[in-house]
Nucleic acid binder design. Structure first.
Length: 156
DNA sequence: GCCAACGTTGGC
DNA sequence: GCCAACGTTGGC
């Protein structure tokens, strides 16, 4: 897999944790509800089957990377946008031309320990351009350079 | 719980 | 097309 991409995806553990993903049938789940255009564009244009992603816990006691998952589908329409009863319903998403997409993610493993945001920030000089450590960052799906991926994993 | 940062909406 | 108001994210 020579031209695969690496990612970081955020999830609030109170809503959906790495353990929740692990507990899913087949250890996989569709990653619905992305309603941010920048995150959508990354997913739609650059995320492909076989890519790997850090699973990051946000809005919790110690935010950080807790595991690794794999993209196991190509991007496809997020059907929750068409469901009026869904909290992700978007009347502006036309089923003939879907506005939002999702992918399927499969649990790979947990990291040996939590790699905290605080610790990642300590290596900021070697992680230039990583959106996670940019001020005010709110991206829930972001690309991670291979070099950055390797560096962060080496902290494990 | 606070609040800074950011994205989106909508009036003009 | 500008920009104020608003809602959300997410670290602290």
């Amino acid at each position: 897999m020579s031209n695969m991409n690496y990612w970081l995806i955020k999830s609030e553990p109170d809503a959906f944790s790495i353990d929740d993903l692990k507990a899913c049938p087949g250890r996989k789940e569709h990653w619905d509800g992305i309603r941010n255009y920048q995150a959508r564009n990354f997913m739609r244009d650059d995320m492909r089957k076989g890519d790997l992603a850090f699973f990051y816990h946000s809005s919790c006691k110690t935010p950080g990377i807790v595991g690794i998952c794999e993209v196991v589908s190509e991007p496809y329409p997020d059907h929750t946008a068409f469901d009026p009863s869904s909290k992700y319903f978007d009347a502006g998403s036309d089923p003939e031309n879907p506005r939002w997409v999702m992918v399927d993610l499969r649990y790979r493993r947990k990291t040996k320990r939590l790699i905290s945001l605080e610790e990642i920030k300590q290596h900021a000089d070697q992680l230039e351009g990583l959106p996670l450590i940019r001020r005010g960052n709110r991206l829930s799906i972001m690309p991670v350079d291979k070099a950055h991926w390797d560096l962060i994993l080496a902290l494990e």
